[in-house]
Design a protein around this nucleic acid. Structure first.
Length: 485
RNA sequence: GGUCUCAUCGUCUAGCCCGGUCUAGGACACCGCCUUUUCACGGCGGUAACAGGGGUUCGAAUCCCCUUGGGACUACCA
């Protein structure tokens, strides 16, 4: 399908300033998929030049989330290729320094000693005069070079400003097509702060250049930044990689997805036991479409047909409802064995270990058919079959308000107390149902809902005939006793 | 404000590049029916969209222009 191109090198470059965001996970996925589909290399680079906000804890956490999703990088801080290491920008200071000096040397950049106040004034004045607030301080003048050098040698710390060329730049984006940034769109911008730390747009270009990155797949929020990067590539005489600016993820208010939209960190879903492949699947679909319009797939199913041509160009709204459905589909797809392993890891499911293999298989089989989430398996088994402290939901209250139900509970309580075996049989259950039907005159929905409520405390769930024989009798006894109150 | 960008069912999207096969297809959600002497699952069916206006053309969701609306970026953040 896709041409094998071992030269392809893509990267995911998160800033360790927080948890891995689902938007980040999505671009990581696209990069991963593109690398795998082309036989290329997936590089992980840590963009931690903002020392204030970056931390190694977040770096570890993000890497753990990436690993959970199976988006394994081929190169990164923990898997360095000597040719390209190091992979943390904070460890590449001397490299940036070198290129910054080089640009100053060629007069493509210059030292700027302006204070914050001076810059503010400049900006205010420009706004007043209706001009774009671009830098036009005195240090822009090449004649100041000697004075600047003198002040630097005295130990002063200026910022380094890039001399933005007066010309338009055109980018051929794989998603957006031809994009032209007009002349004067940006003024001279800072590439190294006065504290000596280089800035994102500068590091990014140097690293992509030095790491031989061939394709930059990232969010559309970087589209306008690209003009600055294009300028630097040109100044450095570097080869410009292919760009693919993927549309953004938005919330229900159509704004860029952020923390205030709720659960936007991958680790939250991980903690809730969402299936990683379901997450990949759902995220992938938000902006990319399967050539055959297939909705459910694993990473492995699509590596051979992933390409950059099938991205949609408009933003996609993040929708938990569809995600839920996708998770349910993956659940049904999984083998009972794999699912059991997952379920047995949960702290609240220790009871499973004591059950027979037949019980485990039957319980998992019925549970997965019924559920959308893994957590519903333990919860369901927990609450419906084994949990001792039942919570009375509003729905339950409704059911219990049916006039027949108290009588059913009374009856079931009497019957279940006579049971001496560990499990009741389907035959016994049928007997109880027959009694309620014939002697109490209850049938249809009230019959089943009533029995279900009496036995499980829930208004919905797997078929009673399958579930009840799997439920330990002592559990049902406790539950019924509780319901009786 | 400036620059860039986007515009198909409520939502995710196919179709658009290479106009007719589109009385616009699929999925989620929703509604109905069937199955199950319950709910869910499953099966079947239904409601629902080419933002508006101009062109070009025999013919436009598809090409061009304008309007409107949305979003992003406009830092010594990334």
């Amino acid at each position: 399908m896709t041409t094998q191109n071992p030269a392809v090198r893509v990267r995911f470059a998160p800033s360790p300033t927080g948890y891995l965001h689902i938007g980040g996970a999505r671009t990581a996925l696209y990069n991963y998929l593109y690398a795998k589909s082309t036989g290329g290399t997936f590089v992980l680079r840590i963009e931690d030049t903002d020392l204030e906000r970056s931390s190694s804890e977040f770096e570890q956490l993000q890497m753990a989330d990436l690993a959970w999703l199976g988006l394994i990088h081929d190169e990164g801080p923990d898997k360095p290729n000597p040719k390209y290491a190091p992979y943390r920008q904070s460890e590449r200071a001397s490299i940036y320094q070198k290129y910054s000096d080089q640009l100053i040397e060629k007069d493509l950049a210059y030292y700027d000693f302006c204070t914050e106040e001076e810059l503010e004034e400049m900006k205010a004045l420009a706004e007043k005069e209706g001009r774009d607030p671009t830098y036009d301080g005195k240090w822009k003048n090449p004649a100041m070079k000697a004075e600047a050098a003198a002040r630097v040698s005295k130990g002063e710390m200026p910022a380094v400003r890039f001399r933005a060329p007066k010309k338009a730049f055109t980018l051929n984006d794989k998603v957006k097509g031809s994009v032209t940034f007009p002349e004067n769109m940006v003024g001279d911008f800072v590439i190294v702060r006065s504290n000596g730390l280089p800035v994102y747009n500068f590091c990014c270009v140097i690293d992509d250049m030095l790491m031989d990155i061939t394709h930059v797949i990232r969010g559309e929020d970087h589209l306008n930044n690209t003009v600055r990067q294009l300028m630097i590539y040109e100044a450095l005489g570097a080869k410009i990689p292919e760009f693919a600016h993927v549309s953004l993820l938005i919330g229900h208010d159509r704004q860029k997805l952020s923390k205030r939209h709720g659960a936007t960190s991958v680790n939250l879903y991980r903690n809730d036991n969402y299936l990683p492949e379901a997450m990949n699947n759902y995220l992938c679909l938000l902006g990319w479409s399967h050539p055959k319009e297939t909705d459910i797939f694993d990473k492995a199913d699509i590596v051979s047909l992933f390409d950059l041509e099938r991205f949609s160009s408009h933003a996609a709204m993040y929708d938990l409802e569809k995600f839920k459905w996708v998770n349910g589909q993956h659940l049904k797809k999984m083998s009972n064995g794999d699912l059991l392993k997952l379920v047995e890891l949960l702290p609240e499911t220790g009871f499973i270990a004591k059950q027979t293999p037949e019980w485990k298989n039957a319980a998992i089989e019925i549970a997965k058919q019924y559920s959308h989430f893994v957590n519903d398996i333990p919860n369901m088994i927990n609450e419906m079959i084994l949990k001792e402290n039942l919570e009375m939901t509003d729905t339950l209250k409704e059911i219990l308000s049916w006039e027949t139900t108290p009588k059913i509970i009374e009856y079931i309580n009497t019957e279940i107390s006579k049971v001496t075996t560990d499990f009741i049989t389907e035959v016994e259950l049928n007997g109880w149902m027959d009694y309620v039907k014939k002697e109490m005159g209850v049938k249809g929905k009230p019959l089943f809902q009533g029995i279900r409520a009496a036995l499980t405390g829930k208004d919905h769930g797997p078929e009673l005939k399958i579930m009840i024989p799997l439920t330990p009798v002592n559990v049902i006894k406790k539950r019924v006793a509780q319901l009786k109150q």
